[in-house]
Design a protein around this nucleic acid. Sequence first.
DNA 1: GTTTATTATCGTAATAATACGATAAAGATA
DNA 2: TATCTTTATCGTATTATTACGATAATAAAC
Lengths: 110, 110
Amino acid sequence: MPRTKKHLFRKTDTGLSEIARALAHPARVAILKELSRRQECVCGEIVDRIPLAQATVSQHLKELKSLGLIVGHIEGPKSCYCINWKKLEEMSTLLKEFFDDLKINHQRCC
Amino acid sequence: MPRTKKHLFRKTDTGLSEIARALAHPARVAILKELSRRQECVCGEIVDRIPLAQATVSQHLKELKSLGLIVGHIEGPKSCYCINWKKLEEMSTLLKEFFDDLKINHQRCC
DNA sequence: GTTTATTATCGTAATAATACGATAAAGATA
DNA sequence: TATCTTTATCGTATTATTACGATAATAAAC
């Protein structure tokens, strides 16, 4: 029965929800934190830092990548991931604007 | 097989992911926007504004409520929902801090 | 008291997300 | 070339989320 109805919403609302979904799992939050700490984007130690199987971490990385939040390229047998700071900035701006918009109408009520 | 592993993560990461999950569906984003617009918390017109069945909207409201983002009390046959501004502020602060923390280490890399 | 309007909840179906073992792929190394 | 290391992908199981009809619950209106 549940054909998703997400297409019926405003693009801005859907966009925001997609951004939020990127952070909607602690593994992805942890991955972003971990990546931000590392200077050189020699990665793959990420797997050691996240308490999940390698396949699962790889899956979460793929999700972050498909959202554009991180970029990755293969380097021999290893991979190299790092944060897409531009996209991250966009994302935090959109979230900030969302909250600011809400707060504009912060008049009491209940 | 997938017993959730969320308990293996840091409380801060899990907390952030829960906050993010609240916004991870356009209906919930739209509900928050709609609620913020209304002065009096005479609600229920929310259902008319969201392109989903009444039961589904009620379900999304319940989720927002259980996260503390909105408060609601019954008023006769109607219900009355409004935004919990305190919680919303907490939430936006946590998100802002998360992004700020990431950005501290914004040194180039890729 | 009966009807009406409004909202929550239950049951259930379908889709999405999470998790991992197994395996493939791709270079490095012996 | 054979082996090893590292990572991605496939298949699949399990759980969570989404969605809605039907129905219950509640108080107002008649």
